[in-house]
């Protein structure tokens, strides 16, 4: 009797796809398959031969099954490989996407500053941009006919209404509606009647304000140094020097060591090695009197800074007007 295994192996090696393989499986193992028939024919054998022959045929059957399975899994794998190859894309083509938009550099710097102060316990307040002369000047100890008004070129709506020239009026508005302690910053737009390479008629400021029992000049230094070190790096030198603002007394101008030349002196710091970055001071008792705070019981500090200047320093921008041209080639850099 010929060995069906030998013929099977020959046929297996020439089965090159899954359907040929399926046919082969039927041919040997199907209901009328060669091996199945052999098994059926066992009953025709004398009883004493049956166990041996049966064992032989079963062994052949198992071996054929194993070969078919292994061949099938290999063919399946090859077919998948072929299919994937034909489905392939050019992975070097660019993907389809819409780049995220960018925040305006001014607002980017503004939120960075806001986050630092919120982290130091300041809340955020707002006030009107079209403001009463009273809040913008009078209540901040800048009376009419006072030369301090020359410090700010004002846009007027009427004799009593102005475009706010600074964010300081928010101090007065907040104190009018709340009792101490208060601790807030007030970011926003301010306006001055001025336009050249370093001035735009609208720009941004952040006002900071804190009033409580026992607030000192030393606290003012603590808060501003912590802020400036977070903003410009822990090694940045900070210096306070006397200045004048009608609504603070004592008043200070705060400088940082020039971040461009490291203090050696350059065009930006005009050779001084220092950059003026904010104005500050202890709240003038006269401001407290305007809002009914008792200056004997409470003390506090205020500070203010221009955002454009900080953004210009941070990104080395040399023309302030770029901020308001809104050219996307500029805006997308931030």
């Amino acid at each position: 009797m010929e060995d069906p295994k030998q013929t099977f192996l020959k046929e297996l090696s020439s089965a090159n796809n899954l359907s040929e393989l399926a046919n082969l499986r039927v041919k040997y193992l199907g209901r009328k398959g060669i091996i199945t028939e052999r098994l059926k024919s066992l009953s025709a054998l004398p009883p004493e031969e049956r166990p041996l022959q049966g064992k032989n045929i079963n062994e052949i059957k198992e071996s054929i099954e194993a070969d078919l399975d292994s061949r099938e899994s290999r063919l399946k794998h090859e077919e998948l490989k072929k299919q994937l190859l034909s489905d392939s894309v050019d992975v070097t083509l660019s993907g389809k996407f819409i780049p995220f938009g960018r925040p305006h550099p001014i607002n980017k710097v503004l939120s960075e500053i806001t986050d630092i102060f919120v982290g130091m316990g300041f809340s955020v307040e707002e006030g009107p941009e079209v403001e009463l002369d009273y809040y913008n000047f009078e209540a901040l100890n800048i009376p009419k006919d006072h030369p301090a008004r020359d410090m700010q070129d004002t846009f007027y709506i009427t004799d009593d209404i102005v475009l706010r020239t600074h964010t300081s009026p928010v101090q007065v508005r907040v104190m009018e509606k709340r009792k101490p302690p208060v601790r807030f910053i007030a970011p926003g737009k301010v306006y001055r009647c001025d336009a050249d390479i370093t001035h735009t008629p609208m720009f941004h400021q952040i006002e900071g304000f804190m009033v409580d029992k026992g607030i000192t000049f030393s606290n003012l230094k603590g808060v501003l140094e912590a802020f400036l070190h977070r903003m410009f790096g822990a090694d940045t030198p900070v210096r306070f020097r006397p200045s004048f603002f009608p609504f603070t007394e004592p008043s200070a101008e705060v400088d940082i060591g020039c971040i461009l030349c490291g203090g050696a002196g350059c065009r930006v710091c005009k050779g001084s090695g220092w950059l003026e970055i904010l104005g500050a001071g202890m709240v003038n008792p006269k401001v407290f009197e305007h809002v009914g705070y008792d200056p004997e019981e409470y003390s506090g500090f205020a500070f203010g800074m221009g955002i454009e200047r900080i953004a210009m320093l941070k990104y080395s921008i040399d023309d302030i007007r770029l901020f308001y041209e809104n050219d996307i080639r500029f805006l997308r850099q931030f």
Partner: peptide
């Protein structure tokens, strides 16, 4: 007070953070 500290030197005032509170954006 400003006259005193102006001559004394602003740079001689120590920096001291006020006691902490929680801030909020609203």
């Amino acid at each position: 007070i400003e006259e005193i500290v102006r001559i004394y030197g602003y740079d001689r005032i120590p920096a001291q953070l006020p006691k902490a509170t929680i801030g909020t954006e609203g």
